[in-house]
């Protein structure tokens, strides 16, 4: 017995050195699924830290409201676990962008510092403008604003972004 143990131990030790894993590409794969709002609603500092936490098994997969049920499903599929509903108190909101009220903005630059993706342009004492195309709707700029001049605006559908709806399932409707 001891001999078997020793031999196997030797082989395993050798293999451990030979087959060491350098980098964990799993984090990248998880990060690719996350919506990159960098909103921190998951309790981590951003999407990447959350991805690292998931990869290490320290965080659950259902903490990301912007990713929604779809995101949870994709994570579940990647990790081979059961999808579950979003956690308590985390509900997805409609996609929105932040808009600065030109009348009240005092140009304090606090929101510029808060924006995780540098989507707000402006200088001290100058009116700030949010670049809508780059805004992720994370709402991180709302609390720092001393004059509450930033509001969230739901993105409306137009002819280009309009989506075909799910065909009504006749059997179920009749039920």
């Amino acid at each position: 017995m001891a001999a078997i143990g020793l031999v196997l131990g030797g082989i395993l030790g050798w293999a451990a050195i030979k087959l060491r894993v350098q980098d964990d590409p799993l984090v990248e794969k998880i990060d690719a699924i996350l919506p990159q709002t960098q909103c921190g609603q998951c309790g981590f500092a951003g999407c990447k830290p959350y991805a690292e936490a998931i990869a290490k098994g320290e965080a659950d997969i259902n903490l990301c409201p912007p990713g929604g049920a779809e995101g949870v499903k994709n994570l579940a599929e990647l990790l081979g676990v059961d999808a579950k509903p979003l956690g308590e108190g985390v509900e997805p909101k409609p996609k929105s962008v932040a808009v600065i009220d030109e009348n009240t903005c005092i140009g304090c630059t606090l929101c510029i510092q808060a924006c995780p993706v540098d989507a707000i342009v402006g200088a001290a004492k100058q009116l700030h403008v949010i670049v809508a195309a780059q805004c992720t709707g994370c709402e991180l700029c709302l609390p720092p604003c001393p004059v509450d001049c930033i509001g969230m605006q739901v993105i409306k559908e137009d002819v280009v972004t309009w989506k075909w709806r799910y065909p009504i399932h006749m059997m179920k409707r009749a039920a």
């Binding site: 395993l12 060491r20 799993l26």
Partner: peptide, 17 residues
């Protein structure tokens, strides 16, 4: 144990799955 290390090296995603 050996297989585990081998898979972890060659296919981390499969390892995780």
């Amino acid at each position: 144990g050996f297989t585990e290390m081998f898979i972890k090296k060659t296919s981390p995603v499969l390892f995780r799955v």
